[in-house]
Design a binder for these strands. Sequence first.
DNA 1: GGCCCGGCTGAGCGGACCCTGAGAGACCGC
DNA 2: GCGGTCTCTCAGGGTCCGCTCAGCCGGGCC
Lengths: 218, 218
Amino acid sequence: MRVLVVDDEVGLVRALRRGLTAEGFAVDAAHDGETGLAMAVDGEYDVLVVDVMLPRRNGYDVVTALRAQDVWTPVLMLSAKDGEHDVADGLDVGADDYLTKPFSFVVLVARLRALVRRPVAPRPAALRAGALTLDPASREVTRDGRVVELTVRETALLEYLLRHAGRVVGKIELLDHVFDTGGEDPNVVEVYVGYLRRKLGRDAVVTVRGAGYRVGTV
Amino acid sequence: MRVLVVDDEVGLVRALRRGLTAEGFAVDAAHDGETGLAMAVDGEYDVLVVDVMLPRRNGYDVVTALRAQDVWTPVLMLSAKDGEHDVADGLDVGADDYLTKPFSFVVLVARLRALVRRPVAPRPAALRAGALTLDPASREVTRDGRVVELTVRETALLEYLLRHAGRVVGKIELLDHVFDTGGEDPNVVEVYVGYLRRKLGRDAVVTVRGAGYRVGTV
DNA sequence: GGCCCGGCTGAGCGGACCCTGAGAGACCGC
DNA sequence: GCGGTCTCTCAGGGTCCGCTCAGCCGGGCC
Protein backbone atom coordinates (compact mmCIF):
# COMPACT_ATOMS: atom_id res chain seq x y z
CA MET A 1 0.00 0.00 0.00
CA ARG A 2 1.62 3.21 -1.14
CA VAL A 3 0.73 6.33 0.81
CA LEU A 4 1.68 9.94 0.16
CA VAL A 5 2.03 12.23 3.15
CA VAL A 6 1.73 15.94 2.39
CA ASP A 7 2.72 18.01 5.39
CA ASP A 8 5.27 20.67 6.13
CA GLU A 9 6.06 19.70 9.70
CA VAL A 10 9.21 17.74 9.17
CA GLY A 11 9.05 16.12 12.58
CA LEU A 12 5.57 14.81 12.03
CA VAL A 13 6.43 13.62 8.56
CA ARG A 14 9.44 11.78 9.84
CA ALA A 15 7.41 10.14 12.58
CA LEU A 16 4.71 9.14 10.14
CA ARG A 17 7.21 7.78 7.70
CA ARG A 18 8.77 5.57 10.31
CA GLY A 19 5.51 4.45 11.84
CA LEU A 20 3.72 3.76 8.61
CA THR A 21 6.71 1.96 7.17
CA ALA A 22 6.68 -0.28 10.21
CA GLU A 23 3.01 -0.95 9.51
CA GLY A 24 3.85 -2.11 6.04
CA PHE A 25 3.05 0.98 4.04
CA ALA A 26 5.33 2.34 1.36
CA VAL A 27 5.64 6.00 2.25
CA ASP A 28 6.37 9.03 0.09
CA ALA A 29 6.30 12.57 1.36
CA ALA A 30 5.86 16.09 0.06
CA HIS A 31 6.33 19.25 2.07
CA ASP A 32 4.13 21.68 0.21
CA GLY A 33 0.86 21.61 -1.65
CA GLU A 34 2.26 22.16 -5.10
CA THR A 35 4.65 19.24 -5.17
CA GLY A 36 2.20 17.11 -3.23
CA LEU A 37 -0.39 17.68 -5.90
CA ALA A 38 2.05 16.88 -8.66
CA MET A 39 3.11 13.67 -7.00
CA ALA A 40 -0.44 12.63 -6.29
CA VAL A 41 -1.51 13.19 -9.86
CA ASP A 42 0.95 10.95 -11.62
CA GLY A 43 2.10 8.79 -8.76
CA GLU A 44 -0.01 5.74 -8.21
CA TYR A 45 -0.97 6.05 -4.55
CA ASP A 46 -3.45 3.96 -2.68
CA VAL A 47 -4.25 6.70 -0.20
CA LEU A 48 -3.19 10.28 0.59
CA VAL A 49 -2.64 12.02 3.91
CA VAL A 50 -2.93 15.76 3.42
CA ASP A 51 -2.54 18.52 5.95
CA VAL A 52 -4.84 21.50 5.64
CA MET A 53 -2.23 24.13 6.37
CA LEU A 54 0.38 23.92 3.68
CA PRO A 55 2.75 26.31 1.99
CA ARG A 56 2.16 27.21 -1.64
CA ARG A 57 -1.21 25.56 -1.78
CA ASN A 58 -3.49 24.54 1.06
CA GLY A 59 -4.99 21.12 1.57
CA TYR A 60 -8.47 21.99 0.34
CA ASP A 61 -6.98 23.35 -2.82
CA VAL A 62 -4.95 20.23 -3.40
CA VAL A 63 -7.92 17.93 -2.99
CA THR A 64 -10.12 20.09 -5.18
CA ALA A 65 -7.51 20.13 -7.90
CA LEU A 66 -7.10 16.38 -7.66
CA ARG A 67 -10.79 15.69 -8.01
CA ALA A 68 -11.00 18.14 -10.89
CA GLN A 69 -8.36 16.08 -12.65
CA ASP A 70 -10.31 12.88 -12.09
CA VAL A 71 -7.96 11.54 -9.47
CA TRP A 72 -10.11 9.78 -6.92
CA THR A 73 -7.47 8.42 -4.63
CA PRO A 74 -8.93 8.39 -1.10
CA VAL A 75 -7.77 11.32 1.00
CA LEU A 76 -7.43 11.62 4.75
CA MET A 77 -7.16 15.25 5.82
CA LEU A 78 -5.28 16.48 8.85
CA SER A 79 -6.81 19.62 10.24
CA ALA A 80 -5.44 21.91 12.88
CA LYS A 81 -7.07 21.54 16.24
CA ASP A 82 -8.87 24.84 16.39
CA GLY A 83 -11.73 25.71 14.14
CA GLU A 84 -14.38 23.10 13.67
CA HIS A 85 -15.46 24.65 10.40
CA ASP A 86 -12.35 23.08 8.87
CA VAL A 87 -13.90 19.69 9.18
CA ALA A 88 -17.03 20.33 7.19
CA ASP A 89 -15.04 22.19 4.57
CA GLY A 90 -12.68 19.28 4.14
CA LEU A 91 -15.41 16.75 3.67
CA ASP A 92 -17.26 19.04 1.28
CA VAL A 93 -14.20 19.47 -0.83
CA GLY A 94 -13.87 15.78 -1.46
CA ALA A 95 -11.76 14.38 1.31
CA ASP A 96 -12.86 10.99 2.54
CA ASP A 97 -11.94 11.30 6.18
CA TYR A 98 -10.25 13.71 8.53
CA LEU A 99 -8.34 13.78 11.77
CA THR A 100 -7.66 16.70 14.03
CA LYS A 101 -4.16 17.31 15.30
CA PRO A 102 -2.96 16.06 17.57
CA PHE A 103 -4.17 12.69 16.51
CA SER A 104 -3.55 9.16 17.57
CA PHE A 105 -1.28 7.13 15.38
CA VAL A 106 -3.35 4.03 16.05
CA VAL A 107 -6.47 5.77 14.86
CA LEU A 108 -4.66 7.11 11.82
CA VAL A 109 -3.61 3.64 10.77
CA ALA A 110 -7.08 2.25 11.36
CA ARG A 111 -8.60 4.99 9.24
CA LEU A 112 -6.07 4.51 6.49
CA ARG A 113 -6.80 0.83 6.38
CA ALA A 114 -10.49 1.55 6.12
CA LEU A 115 -9.89 3.98 3.27
CA VAL A 116 -7.66 1.67 1.33
CA ARG A 117 -10.34 -0.94 1.21
CA ARG A 118 -11.98 0.75 -1.70
CA PRO A 119 -14.54 -0.84 -3.93
CA VAL A 120 -12.74 -3.27 -6.14
CA ALA A 121 -12.53 -2.00 -9.64
CA PRO A 122 -15.22 -3.60 -11.75
CA ARG A 123 -13.64 -6.48 -13.56
CA PRO A 124 -14.01 -6.32 -17.31
CA ALA A 125 -16.22 -9.10 -18.51
CA ALA A 126 -14.62 -12.22 -19.85
CA LEU A 127 -14.28 -12.63 -23.58
CA ARG A 128 -16.35 -15.48 -24.87
CA ALA A 129 -16.93 -17.33 -28.10
CA GLY A 130 -18.62 -20.68 -28.15
CA ALA A 131 -16.91 -22.99 -25.69
CA LEU A 132 -13.98 -20.60 -25.22
CA THR A 133 -13.56 -17.94 -22.56
CA LEU A 134 -10.68 -15.63 -21.74
CA ASP A 135 -10.60 -13.48 -18.62
CA PRO A 136 -8.44 -10.44 -19.37
CA ALA A 137 -7.76 -9.82 -15.69
CA SER A 138 -6.62 -13.24 -14.60
CA ARG A 139 -5.32 -14.28 -18.02
CA GLU A 140 -7.21 -17.46 -17.55
CA VAL A 141 -8.50 -19.39 -20.54
CA THR A 142 -11.11 -22.09 -20.41
CA ARG A 143 -12.49 -24.52 -22.94
CA ASP A 144 -15.78 -26.16 -21.97
CA GLY A 145 -15.26 -24.77 -18.48
CA ARG A 146 -11.91 -26.45 -18.14
CA VAL A 147 -8.87 -24.26 -17.52
CA VAL A 148 -6.22 -24.45 -20.21
CA GLU A 149 -2.65 -23.30 -19.68
CA LEU A 150 -1.44 -20.95 -22.37
CA THR A 151 1.78 -19.04 -22.77
CA VAL A 152 1.79 -15.27 -22.97
CA ARG A 153 2.00 -15.16 -26.73
CA GLU A 154 -0.66 -17.76 -27.20
CA THR A 155 -2.95 -15.83 -24.90
CA ALA A 156 -2.30 -12.62 -26.79
CA LEU A 157 -3.16 -14.28 -30.07
CA LEU A 158 -6.33 -15.80 -28.72
CA GLU A 159 -7.33 -12.52 -27.14
CA TYR A 160 -7.00 -10.67 -30.42
CA LEU A 161 -9.00 -13.29 -32.25
CA LEU A 162 -11.68 -13.26 -29.56
CA ARG A 163 -11.92 -9.49 -29.65
CA HIS A 164 -12.69 -9.84 -33.33
CA ALA A 165 -14.75 -12.99 -33.03
CA GLY A 166 -16.75 -13.87 -36.08
CA ARG A 167 -14.52 -11.84 -38.38
CA VAL A 168 -11.77 -13.23 -40.56
CA VAL A 169 -8.48 -11.80 -39.35
CA GLY A 170 -5.57 -11.68 -41.78
CA LYS A 171 -2.15 -13.00 -40.90
CA ILE A 172 -0.47 -9.69 -41.53
CA GLU A 173 -2.92 -8.01 -39.15
CA LEU A 174 -2.14 -10.60 -36.51
CA LEU A 175 1.55 -10.19 -37.16
CA ASP A 176 1.22 -6.47 -36.52
CA HIS A 177 -0.96 -6.64 -33.45
CA VAL A 178 0.20 -9.75 -31.66
CA PHE A 179 3.78 -10.42 -32.62
CA ASP A 180 6.66 -8.16 -31.81
CA THR A 181 8.95 -9.06 -34.63
CA GLY A 182 9.11 -6.43 -37.31
CA GLY A 183 9.46 -9.26 -39.79
CA GLU A 184 6.88 -10.11 -42.36
CA ASP A 185 6.96 -13.84 -42.32
CA PRO A 186 3.44 -15.00 -41.56
CA ASN A 187 4.71 -18.40 -40.63
CA VAL A 188 4.87 -17.39 -36.97
CA VAL A 189 1.15 -16.92 -37.00
CA GLU A 190 0.63 -20.33 -38.49
CA VAL A 191 2.85 -21.88 -35.87
CA TYR A 192 0.97 -20.25 -33.05
CA VAL A 193 -2.40 -21.08 -34.46
CA GLY A 194 -1.11 -24.62 -34.45
CA TYR A 195 -0.24 -24.31 -30.76
CA LEU A 196 -3.71 -22.99 -29.98
CA ARG A 197 -5.36 -25.82 -31.84
CA ARG A 198 -3.24 -28.35 -30.05
CA LYS A 199 -4.31 -26.99 -26.66
CA LEU A 200 -7.85 -25.88 -27.35
CA GLY A 201 -8.99 -28.40 -29.89
CA ARG A 202 -8.67 -28.68 -33.60
CA ASP A 203 -11.79 -26.65 -34.32
CA ALA A 204 -11.04 -23.75 -32.00
CA VAL A 205 -9.63 -21.71 -34.85
CA VAL A 206 -10.84 -22.15 -38.40
CA THR A 207 -8.67 -21.41 -41.38
CA VAL A 208 -10.05 -19.34 -44.22
CA ARG A 209 -7.73 -20.16 -47.02
CA GLY A 210 -6.15 -17.15 -48.61
CA ALA A 211 -7.69 -14.75 -46.10
CA GLY A 212 -6.74 -15.59 -42.54
CA TYR A 213 -8.31 -17.11 -39.43
CA ARG A 214 -11.60 -16.89 -37.66
CA VAL A 215 -12.80 -17.70 -34.16
CA GLY A 216 -16.40 -18.16 -33.22
CA THR A 217 -19.40 -18.40 -35.43
CA VAL A 218 -20.27 -15.84 -38.03
CA MET B 1 -26.92 10.22 19.40
CA ARG B 2 -25.84 8.37 22.48
CA VAL B 3 -22.86 9.77 24.32
CA LEU B 4 -21.05 8.36 27.32
CA VAL B 5 -19.33 10.79 29.64
CA VAL B 6 -16.60 9.34 31.82
CA ASP B 7 -15.51 11.83 34.46
CA ASP B 8 -15.32 11.93 38.23
CA GLU B 9 -16.14 15.58 38.75
CA VAL B 10 -19.80 15.31 39.57
CA GLY B 11 -20.45 18.99 38.94
CA LEU B 12 -19.02 18.84 35.46
CA VAL B 13 -20.88 15.65 34.67
CA ARG B 14 -24.16 17.14 35.79
CA ALA B 15 -23.59 20.23 33.69
CA LEU B 16 -22.67 18.15 30.66
CA ARG B 17 -25.68 15.92 31.12
CA ARG B 18 -28.03 18.84 31.18
CA GLY B 19 -26.39 20.72 28.35
CA LEU B 20 -25.95 17.76 26.03
CA THR B 21 -29.48 16.56 26.66
CA ALA B 22 -30.70 19.97 25.65
CA GLU B 23 -28.65 19.60 22.48
CA GLY B 24 -30.41 16.38 21.66
CA PHE B 25 -27.90 13.83 22.92
CA ALA B 26 -28.85 10.84 25.02
CA VAL B 27 -26.36 10.98 27.86
CA ASP B 28 -24.97 8.21 30.06
CA ALA B 29 -22.29 8.78 32.64
CA ALA B 30 -19.63 6.84 34.50
CA HIS B 31 -17.51 8.12 37.35
CA ASP B 32 -14.45 5.94 37.11
CA GLY B 33 -12.42 4.29 34.41
CA GLU B 34 -13.37 0.73 35.17
CA THR B 35 -17.13 1.12 34.85
CA GLY B 36 -16.67 3.56 31.97
CA LEU B 37 -14.73 0.94 30.08
CA ALA B 38 -17.31 -1.74 30.80
CA MET B 39 -20.15 0.48 29.62
CA ALA B 40 -18.29 1.55 26.51
CA VAL B 41 -17.48 -1.99 25.50
CA ASP B 42 -20.98 -3.38 25.33
CA GLY B 43 -23.00 -0.20 25.28
CA GLU B 44 -23.61 1.07 21.79
CA TYR B 45 -22.41 4.64 21.97
CA ASP B 46 -21.89 7.00 19.09
CA VAL B 47 -19.18 8.93 20.86
CA LEU B 48 -17.31 8.93 24.16
CA VAL B 49 -16.12 11.82 26.30
CA VAL B 50 -13.32 10.61 28.55
CA ASP B 51 -11.37 12.54 31.13
CA VAL B 52 -7.68 11.76 31.47
CA MET B 53 -7.59 11.84 35.27
CA LEU B 54 -9.86 9.11 36.52
CA PRO B 55 -10.03 6.87 39.56
CA ARG B 56 -9.36 3.15 39.14
CA ARG B 57 -8.18 3.49 35.59
CA ASN B 58 -7.02 6.58 33.77
CA GLY B 59 -8.30 7.82 30.45
CA TYR B 60 -5.39 6.64 28.38
CA ASP B 61 -5.80 3.21 29.80
CA VAL B 62 -9.46 3.11 29.01
CA VAL B 63 -8.98 4.08 25.41
CA THR B 64 -6.12 1.65 24.95
CA ALA B 65 -8.23 -1.16 26.33
CA LEU B 66 -11.12 -0.21 24.07
CA ARG B 67 -9.02 -0.21 20.94
CA ALA B 68 -7.46 -3.47 21.97
CA GLN B 69 -10.94 -4.95 22.08
CA ASP B 70 -11.71 -3.62 18.65
CA VAL B 71 -14.06 -0.94 19.81
CA TRP B 72 -13.53 2.07 17.56
CA THR B 73 -16.16 4.40 18.88
CA PRO B 74 -14.79 7.93 18.48
CA VAL B 75 -13.30 9.31 21.68
CA LEU B 76 -12.91 12.92 22.74
CA MET B 77 -10.42 13.21 25.56
CA LEU B 78 -10.56 15.86 28.23
CA SER B 79 -7.11 16.68 29.55
CA ALA B 80 -6.27 18.82 32.53
CA LYS B 81 -4.97 22.24 31.70
CA ASP B 82 -1.56 21.81 33.20
CA GLY B 83 -1.31 18.15 32.44
CA GLU B 84 2.18 16.80 32.54
CA HIS B 85 0.56 14.10 30.49
CA ASP B 86 0.65 16.33 27.51
CA VAL B 87 -1.26 15.90 24.35
CA ALA B 88 1.80 14.26 22.91
CA ASP B 89 1.27 11.41 25.30
CA GLY B 90 -2.20 10.83 24.02
CA LEU B 91 -0.85 10.60 20.55
CA ASP B 92 -0.32 6.91 20.73
CA VAL B 93 -3.34 5.97 22.71
CA GLY B 94 -6.10 6.07 20.20
CA ALA B 95 -8.26 9.07 20.99
CA ASP B 96 -9.75 11.01 18.11
CA ASP B 97 -9.81 14.50 19.52
CA TYR B 98 -8.71 16.48 22.58
CA LEU B 99 -9.96 19.34 24.65
CA THR B 100 -8.13 20.98 27.51
CA LYS B 101 -10.02 22.01 30.57
CA PRO B 102 -11.53 24.47 30.99
CA PHE B 103 -13.31 24.30 27.68
CA SER B 104 -16.16 26.05 26.01
CA PHE B 105 -19.35 24.06 25.93
CA VAL B 106 -20.11 25.29 22.45
CA VAL B 107 -16.79 24.01 21.22
CA LEU B 108 -17.37 20.67 22.90
CA VAL B 109 -20.69 20.21 21.16
CA ALA B 110 -19.23 21.22 17.83
CA ARG B 111 -16.44 18.68 18.26
CA LEU B 112 -18.83 15.95 19.24
CA ARG B 113 -21.02 16.63 16.24
CA ALA B 114 -17.96 16.52 14.02
CA LEU B 115 -16.83 13.23 15.49
CA VAL B 116 -20.22 11.65 15.09
CA ARG B 117 -20.65 12.87 11.55
CA ARG B 118 -17.44 11.28 10.51
CA PRO B 119 -17.68 7.86 8.98
CA VAL B 120 -16.73 5.38 11.65
CA ALA B 121 -13.89 3.18 10.60
CA PRO B 122 -15.31 -0.29 10.82
CA ARG B 123 -13.12 -3.24 11.44
CA PRO B 124 -11.93 -4.20 8.01
CA ALA B 125 -13.06 -7.65 7.07
CA ALA B 126 -10.38 -10.29 6.81
CA LEU B 127 -8.94 -10.81 3.39
CA ARG B 128 -9.37 -14.34 2.23
CA ALA B 129 -8.42 -16.48 -0.72
CA GLY B 130 -8.58 -20.21 -0.55
CA ALA B 131 -6.72 -21.44 2.51
CA LEU B 132 -5.16 -18.03 3.16
CA THR B 133 -6.46 -15.27 5.39
CA LEU B 134 -5.00 -11.92 6.37
CA ASP B 135 -6.53 -9.75 9.07
CA PRO B 136 -5.75 -6.15 8.10
CA ALA B 137 -6.19 -4.96 11.66
CA SER B 138 -3.93 -7.39 13.47
CA ARG B 139 -1.68 -8.19 10.50
CA GLU B 140 -2.21 -11.82 11.28
CA VAL B 141 -1.86 -14.33 8.50
CA THR B 142 -3.14 -17.85 8.57
CA ARG B 143 -2.83 -20.79 6.26
CA ASP B 144 -5.35 -23.59 6.84
CA GLY B 145 -6.27 -21.89 10.10
CA ARG B 146 -2.70 -22.00 11.34
CA VAL B 147 -1.01 -18.71 12.12
CA VAL B 148 2.06 -17.98 10.04
CA GLU B 149 4.71 -15.46 11.04
CA LEU B 150 5.51 -12.99 8.29
CA THR B 151 7.75 -9.98 8.21
CA VAL B 152 6.33 -6.55 7.51
CA ARG B 153 7.29 -6.57 3.87
CA GLU B 154 6.05 -10.06 3.28
CA THR B 155 2.73 -9.11 4.80
CA ALA B 156 2.49 -6.03 2.64
CA LEU B 157 3.11 -8.07 -0.47
CA LEU B 158 0.55 -10.68 0.48
CA GLU B 159 -1.97 -7.99 1.35
CA TYR B 160 -1.68 -6.37 -2.04
CA LEU B 161 -2.02 -9.69 -3.80
CA LEU B 162 -5.03 -10.59 -1.69
CA ARG B 163 -6.70 -7.27 -2.37
CA HIS B 164 -6.44 -8.14 -6.03
CA ALA B 165 -7.13 -11.84 -5.67
CA GLY B 166 -7.87 -13.60 -8.89
CA ARG B 167 -6.15 -10.98 -10.97
CA VAL B 168 -2.67 -11.23 -12.38
CA VAL B 169 -0.61 -8.49 -10.78
CA GLY B 170 2.47 -7.35 -12.65
CA LYS B 171 5.84 -7.07 -10.98
CA ILE B 172 6.15 -3.40 -11.75
CA GLU B 173 2.81 -2.75 -10.13
CA LEU B 174 3.97 -4.65 -7.06
CA LEU B 175 7.21 -2.71 -7.05
CA ASP B 176 5.27 0.54 -7.07
CA HIS B 177 2.77 -0.33 -4.40
CA VAL B 178 4.61 -2.60 -2.03
CA PHE B 179 8.30 -1.83 -2.19
CA ASP B 180 9.86 1.44 -1.25
CA THR B 181 12.88 1.32 -3.48
CA GLY B 182 12.70 3.76 -6.33
CA GLY B 183 14.53 1.18 -8.41
CA GLU B 184 12.99 -0.80 -11.18
CA ASP B 185 14.57 -4.15 -10.64
CA PRO B 186 11.73 -6.62 -10.33
CA ASN B 187 14.01 -9.16 -8.74
CA VAL B 188 12.98 -7.98 -5.29
CA VAL B 189 9.49 -9.08 -6.04
CA GLU B 190 10.69 -12.49 -7.11
CA VAL B 191 12.70 -12.87 -3.97
CA TYR B 192 9.78 -11.97 -1.75
CA VAL B 193 7.41 -14.19 -3.61
CA GLY B 194 9.95 -16.88 -2.88
CA TYR B 195 9.79 -16.04 0.83
CA LEU B 196 6.00 -16.19 0.80
CA ARG B 197 6.04 -19.54 -0.89
CA ARG B 198 8.52 -20.89 1.60
CA LYS B 199 6.27 -19.89 4.48
CA LEU B 200 2.84 -20.37 3.00
CA GLY B 201 3.36 -23.27 0.69
CA ARG B 202 4.58 -23.61 -2.81
CA ASP B 203 1.18 -23.10 -4.36
CA ALA B 204 0.17 -20.04 -2.38
CA VAL B 205 1.27 -17.73 -5.17
CA VAL B 206 1.13 -18.82 -8.77
CA THR B 207 3.40 -17.21 -11.28
CA VAL B 208 2.05 -16.32 -14.67
CA ARG B 209 5.13 -16.25 -16.78
CA GLY B 210 5.61 -13.01 -18.60
CA ALA B 211 2.70 -11.35 -16.81
CA GLY B 212 3.14 -11.44 -13.04
CA TYR B 213 1.70 -13.28 -10.08
CA ARG B 214 -1.73 -14.31 -8.97
CA VAL B 215 -3.26 -15.39 -5.68
CA GLY B 216 -6.46 -17.30 -5.42
CA THR B 217 -8.56 -18.66 -8.21
CA VAL B 218 -10.98 -16.60 -10.14
C1' DG C 1 -1.61 -37.46 -63.12
C1' DG C 2 1.62 -33.65 -62.46
C1' DC C 3 2.47 -29.22 -60.76
C1' DC C 4 1.94 -25.22 -57.87
C1' DC C 5 0.78 -22.80 -53.87
C1' DG C 6 -0.87 -21.97 -49.36
C1' DG C 7 -0.98 -23.93 -44.98
C1' DC C 8 0.84 -27.21 -41.32
C1' DT C 9 4.26 -29.06 -38.17
C1' DG C 10 8.48 -31.22 -35.93
C1' DA C 11 12.97 -29.85 -34.54
C1' DG C 12 16.03 -26.81 -32.58
C1' DC C 13 18.47 -22.63 -30.97
C1' DG C 14 19.09 -18.40 -28.50
C1' DG C 15 17.44 -15.91 -25.04
C1' DA C 16 14.05 -14.10 -21.81
C1' DC C 17 12.26 -15.13 -17.61
C1' DC C 18 12.21 -16.84 -13.11
C1' DC C 19 14.15 -18.95 -8.90
C1' DT C 20 17.50 -19.25 -5.29
C1' DG C 21 21.59 -19.03 -2.23
C1' DA C 22 24.73 -15.88 -0.42
C1' DG C 23 25.68 -11.75 1.52
C1' DA C 24 25.97 -6.54 2.38
C1' DG C 25 23.82 -2.83 4.76
C1' DA C 26 20.35 -0.87 7.84
C1' DC C 27 17.89 -1.10 11.92
C1' DC C 28 16.64 -2.58 16.57
C1' DG C 29 16.72 -4.42 21.21
C1' DC C 30 19.79 -5.51 24.80
C1' DG D 1 28.80 -1.93 20.80
C1' DC D 2 26.86 -6.40 19.49
C1' DG D 3 24.08 -10.03 17.89
C1' DG D 4 19.89 -10.78 15.49
C1' DT D 5 16.45 -9.71 12.13
C1' DC D 6 14.92 -7.68 8.06
C1' DT D 7 15.32 -5.70 3.43
C1' DC D 8 17.29 -5.62 -0.69
C1' DT D 9 21.14 -6.67 -4.23
C1' DC D 10 23.77 -9.67 -6.99
C1' DA D 11 25.16 -13.49 -9.70
C1' DG D 12 24.45 -18.10 -11.38
C1' DG D 13 21.79 -21.51 -13.28
C1' DG D 14 17.67 -23.95 -14.94
C1' DT D 15 13.53 -23.92 -17.49
C1' DC D 16 10.46 -22.59 -20.70
C1' DC D 17 9.25 -19.63 -24.52
C1' DG D 18 9.36 -17.31 -28.95
C1' DC D 19 10.74 -17.62 -33.26
C1' DT D 20 13.01 -19.65 -37.44
C1' DC D 21 13.74 -23.16 -40.67
C1' DA D 22 12.96 -26.76 -43.58
C1' DG D 23 10.25 -30.24 -45.11
C1' DC D 24 5.56 -32.22 -45.69
C1' DC D 25 0.65 -32.25 -46.86
C1' DG D 26 -3.42 -31.44 -49.48
C1' DG D 27 -6.38 -28.99 -52.58
C1' DG D 28 -6.96 -26.66 -57.01
C1' DC D 29 -5.82 -26.17 -61.76
C1' DC D 30 -3.99 -27.55 -66.15
